[in-house]
Amino acid sequence: MRARTATEDHPLTRWALVALTIGFVILFLLMPLIMVFSAALEKGLGAALETLGDPDALSSIWLTAVVAMIAVPFNTVFGVAAAWAVSKYDFRGKTVLTALIDLPFSVSPVIAGLIYVLIFGLQGWMGPWLREHDIKIIFALPGIVLATMFVTVPFVARELIPLMTDQGRDEEEAAISLGASGWKAFFRITLPSIKWGLLYGVLLCNARAMGEFGAVSVVSGHIRGQTNTMPLHVEVLYNDYQFVAAFAVASVLAFLALVTLTLKSFLEWRYADEIAAVHRR
């Protein structure tokens, strides 16, 4: 028999904790996912696919992809810049800035949406000016992109700040003293050593950008075939009692999430050696 160590708990405790975790995951994470897919396939695969061919459904899928394609790169660049500033420089107000980056996590997304309505809406601060120049932000793509960006700002920065703080400036300084320019130091030293954290942050950011409901709901205006993203379209269909269609679109969203998760796990498995080399000192 194996000797027990000081940190090892009673077998019963261990068993209970494992059982609790597995039970929780099945009940609250796995079951709903299965329910989504099974509800979509209730009347067969053909019926589900047919609802996805509907122009409004296709438009919502396309709109979601466009929003993510704009919001995610913006927040990636911003996240790297913010993490760089916070982790490599000392300046006044740094702690306040770090706290502000977290703001979208603590503010309700609905409020995020309302902020943009107050600024850019017809009755808002910039409303009259925008109308004069015929620029539409609220109830149009720019508003949806802005709301999505607000909600997903923290993901990349949050992932990178602890990582880059931990790595310090030594390696960049070494690169510079060996003759590298600032850009070369960034692309050859900084970026490779944060790429796994960056990738993880981008994947999370993307998942949230595609799935965001609250903030987008406020600024979108729910115009079918024009300003409905996938999550909004799911709600519209559900309220119309079109259950198969609603769950079919929901399945696409869930499927995208699963692809994200699989991609991340695959990359972690494929590059395990390299990741270990970067993290061990």
Partner: peptide
């Protein structure tokens, strides 16, 4: 100027 750092600062990747 060849600089050798206290904690080596080798490029880990």
């Amino acid at each position: 100027a060849g600089f050798v750092f206290q904690h080596y600062a080798l490029f880990r990747h």
